[in-house]
């Protein structure tokens, strides 16, 4: 009940914001009868109506994970974000080994297999991508290799 209502409310807000920003779209002098605003406004309106349905006729709540698992999920998200930033400046192998290791540990909390799968995946995938698929990946950052 509550989850659907909250989600409906979020969608409603987003839809209204979307409609509001759609009205700000600049039209050029070459306008067609519909123009660039109408379709986004239409989409926003349908979303707003559907969100109202969701708020007033919610489904039963799904099973949400406990606080601890939520923390783990949030942490996984942070790790992936950090990985996205690290991939370019730090080369492929080190960030990949760390990220894959952490994810592996989060799925099955045993340190040794997790570390092994992190290192193994990182090196294995590097070889696959670099030599079999010919992607231009950099193994290590410049300041390590010199």
């Amino acid at each position: 009940m509550a989850s659907d209502r909250i989600f409906g409310l979020v969608v409603l807000m987003a839809a209204l914001a979307y409609i509001a920003s759609a009205t700000q779209i600049q039209t050029s002098f070459l306008a067609d009868p519909v123009g660039p605003k109408t379709f986004p406004i239409l989409v926003g309106t349908v979303a707003a109506i559907s969100s109202l349905v969701m708020i007033f006729r919610p489904d039963p709540d799904p099973e949400w994970p406990d606080k601890f698992t939520f923390g783990a999920l949030f942490f996984a998200m942070l790790v992936l974000i950090a990985y996205a930033y690290a991939l370019k400046p730090l080369g492929f192998i080190i960030p990949t080994a760390i990220t894959a290791g952490i994810l592996s540990y989060q799925i099955s909390p045993r340190i040794k297999p997790a570390a092994l799968s992190g290192v193994g995946l990182s090196i294995g995938l590097f070889i696959l991508f670099k030599f079999a698929l010919g992607l231009g990946l950099i193994a290590f950052p410049k300041f390590l290799v010199g």
Binding site: V11, A15, Y18, S21, A22, I25, Q26, T27, S28, L30, A31, D32, G35, P36, F39, P40, V43, G44, V46, A47, I49, S50, S51, M54
Partner: peptide
């Protein structure tokens, strides 16, 4: 319907093909 609208809404982002103006 909400899911479809999320997708359609995301598709609108970017330069509009007809007018050449950036949208959203």
């Amino acid at each position: 319907a909400i899911a479809s609208c999320i997708g359609l809404g995301i598709a609108m982002i970017g330069v509009d093909n007809n007018s050449g103006m950036p949208r959203l």
